[in-house]
Design a protein around this nucleic acid. Sequence first.
DNA 1: CCGCCTGTGAAAGGCACGTGAACAACGGTG
DNA 2: CACCGTTGTTCACGTGCCTTTCACAGGCGG
Lengths: 118, 118
Amino acid sequence: MSTPTEAPQSATPGEDPIRIAQVEIRPTEGLAVVAGRAVPLSVREFELLSALASRSGHVVAREELFSSVWGGPLRRGDRSIDVYVHKVRQKLEAASPGWHFIHTHIGFGYRFSPEPAH
Amino acid sequence: MSTPTEAPQSATPGEDPIRIAQVEIRPTEGLAVVAGRAVPLSVREFELLSALASRSGHVVAREELFSSVWGGPLRRGDRSIDVYVHKVRQKLEAASPGWHFIHTHIGFGYRFSPEPAH
DNA sequence: CCGCCTGTGAAAGGCACGTGAACAACGGTG
DNA sequence: CACCGTTGTTCACGTGCCTTTCACAGGCGG
């Protein structure tokens, strides 16, 4: 079956597609394919998803997420991450109903891990 | 050079017909057939469609599209691609109403993939 | 009860793209 | 040579999307 990919995560969103369960991310195209469906993502949305998926199964701290995607220190009160997590969630779950992909860890950050809504 | 390590994709349209869903592209004839109807295309239009269709399902960057079809670096502010995508879209969708063929990926490029307008 | 944190809808501004039209370059025709 | 249809390029003006920010609501712990 599928051994949770323990690939040597490279900081830069490399050029090789990332595959996790029914999700495929193509860095060179800025395109995500979920359950066989092309999911149109904006630049920010795509970078956020990449940052999360490249560390699939691990909790990524808000500070780390922000510096990865927005490229700077996270200012107090900045809600950009929340807004974009929401947008990505919507699109992923619309493409694959009954599944959850991004999980919240209050006080820490977010974790990418495709799971049935059960 | 900037030749991507990929399949025998060539900037010049090959000689074998490309068939995707209801679309057939005949390089030797410079003709496209959509839903059984012959679609007359100019040289530029045909080359643009070929460049997109030869990578069906994948997002083709504006830069790459331009160098493939126009044969040079994409100048800042050049809207030729937009204009020709519009022309090709019109003709394809006129031949097969209710379907979309060329999808925009803002900030990246375009993707050829026949889909119901839904 | 009071803060802190996150979810979520919406407004504002900027920018990429959609689209109709004008213009120039050709080639064919009378 | 004058006229005309086609093609490719450029311009001008919307229009919708993207990003950021604000506002409000609910959950949880102290």
